[in-house]
Design a protein around this nucleic acid. Structure first.
Lengths: 141, 141
DNA sequence: GTCCTTGCAAAACGTTTGCAGTTCA
DNA sequence: TGAACTGCAAACGTTTTGCAAGGAC
């Protein structure tokens, strides 16, 4: 489902279809990174110079509440947004903040969570915490 | 390993043993909740009325960097800190923010992550995202 | 005595809110 | 036309920073 399809469906729920929203959602669906609101803002500004950060947040929250994107908060201050939940896992260094990808088959636990909780599960996220090889030096004896 | 043991070990690394730090760490190890910095502050203030929020953050970051506690960021603005990583999982509603516990045996993936990445893994966290039964009404057709 | 830590206050940062003007339907 | 949205700016809550005084070792 692409950006236009999603926004068309949202129209039935009283959500307006605006070019800014289209640009934001298209960017999120096209990228494999997990951009911050600021990064999305910078990207959309190239196409719509007048767009504001407030509009970015407005749209991101709307998409999140309708279950089309995920908001992931990391240790660094700002949230990251993900339009493609079928992704990989991360390992975060508690000391230097480095993040490395952990590629392994996605755990198939969403259905179990859906059945037990009654939620409509959109996706999950798993993160490992630890000390990276550099930061391990002299630590954790 | 209790608070005093941990702080004694940190002394060898040039980290000072102060009563404020002891109180903060003891609270974190004793509770099963995931308190925010503010909640830790309120608790420690009962014992040390003059303590400041800055000291709480200072200590939490130090403990995190040495791999003794985890910082977990949620959708709501403030981070939560966890001294007992062996816990449960969460399911978060993307619309109303409700969080419910998901009790299931912890997935045994830490060792795999440690071997592949070279990190010293302290723990992991998994979160499911979706729409809760109430917020599903009329959504996601 | 040294230098790490504390407490305080101010600053920085990400995010939300309020509002007047605009645009989609 | 009317409700939803935009852009802007101000406000908000969390976290970090700077610095003088204090405390651990």
């Amino acid at each position: 489902m692409d950006a236009i399809d999603i926004l068309r469906k949202l129209k039935d729920k009283g959500v307006r279809f605006t070019p800014q929203r289209q640009a934001i959602l298209e960017f999120l669906l096209a990228t494999e990174s997990h951009p911050t609101a600021e990064e999305i803002y910078q990207h959309v500004k190239a196409k719509f110079p007048g767009v504001s950060l407030g509009t970015i947040y407005n749209t991101l929250n709307m998409l999140k509440e309708h279950g089309h994107i995920l908001e992931l908060s990391y240790g660094d201050m700002s949230s990251r947004f993900d339009g493609n939940p079928d992704n990989h896992y991360h390992i975060v260094c508690s000391k230097c903040g480095r993040v490395v990808d952990f590629h392994r088959p996605l755990l198939e636990v969403d259905q179990e969570a859906e059945e037990i909780s009654g939620f409509r599960i959109i996706g999950h996220r798993m993160e490992f915490y630890g000390l990276c090889p550099e930061c391990r030096q002299g630590e954790m004896n």
